[in-house]
């Protein structure tokens, strides 16, 4: 087992493994999305309080979860990379960031779509939405740091340090935003207190969560393959691959 892990820590071996895994995750994600959307729009009953508009939570909740979860995974890879100086961990972190940012943005967007019928406003400074917004800002910060640094080694480490200090800060930010929200008593309706959820709604939600999860894995594997090719383009094995394609 441990031998296998070390083997795949080398970018060359991981490139191949990732290539074999991508179709599986991509297809599972596609199928699960189809099932999930079917459940969400055709099977799940209309909510007696919120009407049809509530159906956006089938997108909103998975997106919000994934945006947080991906940040934690990035922090994990950053810590591993800084501790053992493994290049692949930094590449994974870089590959995950855009997906995380997309999910954070999606959760903001769907939150706004939900907010309009619920609160009569596209945006309310609800604790959840506000923390999603700040999480989105964190993603933007990390990605702009990467893009400003030309040297890949420096960029890797600088981005990892920023991700980590952000990760330490994220729980405090969440807490402070919640604190701020109760202090100012803004919205009285709270997203966490969703009316008791029917089993079928929960099922649809879970399916969508897994779909999002597999999508995130597939997308970041595709991206990490690109990063590996770019970083290792002076090596022989990449030259062989590129010639084979040409």
């Amino acid at each position: 087992m441990s031998i296998a892990i070390f083997k795949y820590a080398a970018p060359m071996n991981f490139y191949g493994l990732a290539g074999r895994l991508i179709p599986w995750f991509a297809w599972s994600s596609g199928i699960l999305t189809a099932i999930g959307l079917y459940l969400a729009f055709f099977v799940a009953p209309t909510d007696f309080q919120q009407g049809e508009a509530y159906r956006v939570i089938f997108l909103h909740v998975p997106a919000a979860w994934m945006s947080m979860f991906i940040y934690m995974v990035m922090a994990f890879w950053s810590a591993v990379g800084l501790a053992w100086n493994t290049r692949l961990s930094f590449m994974m972190s870089r590959a995950l960031a855009p997906t995380g940012a997309v999910f954070a943005f999606l959760s903001l967007w769907t939150g706004a779509l939900w907010g309009k019928p619920m609160w009569g406003a596209w945006w309310v400074w609800d604790a959840r939405l506000t923390s999603s917004l700040i999480l989105f800002f964190l993603y933007v910060g990390i990605m702009s740091l990467w893009s400003a640094i030309d040297d890949p080694r420096r960029g890797d480490k600088a981005g990892a340090l920023l991700t980590l200090i952000g990760a330490i800060n994220v729980p405090i930010i969440y807490f402070s935003v919640k604190w701020w929200n109760t202090l100012h008593q803004g919205s009285t309706i709270n997203m966490t207190k969703a009316p008791s959820m029917a089993a079928i709604m929960l099922a649809g939600m879970l399916v969508m969560v897994f779909a999002a999860w597999f999508y995130a894995i597939a997308a970041s594997l595709v991206r990490v393959r690109g990063i590996i090719l770019e970083r290792e383009r002076q090596t022989e094995w990449v030259a062989e691959i590129l010639e084979g394609k040409a």
Partner: peptide, 23 residues
């Protein structure tokens, strides 16, 4: 760039600091 990186991390300080005055 510094502004982009650091402003989100300042959020707790802003909330507690300004919150103290409000309270």
């Amino acid at each position: 760039l510094l502004t982009l990186l650091i402003l989100p991390l300042y959020v707790p300080a802003l909330i507690f600091g300004a919150g103290a005055v409000d309270a």
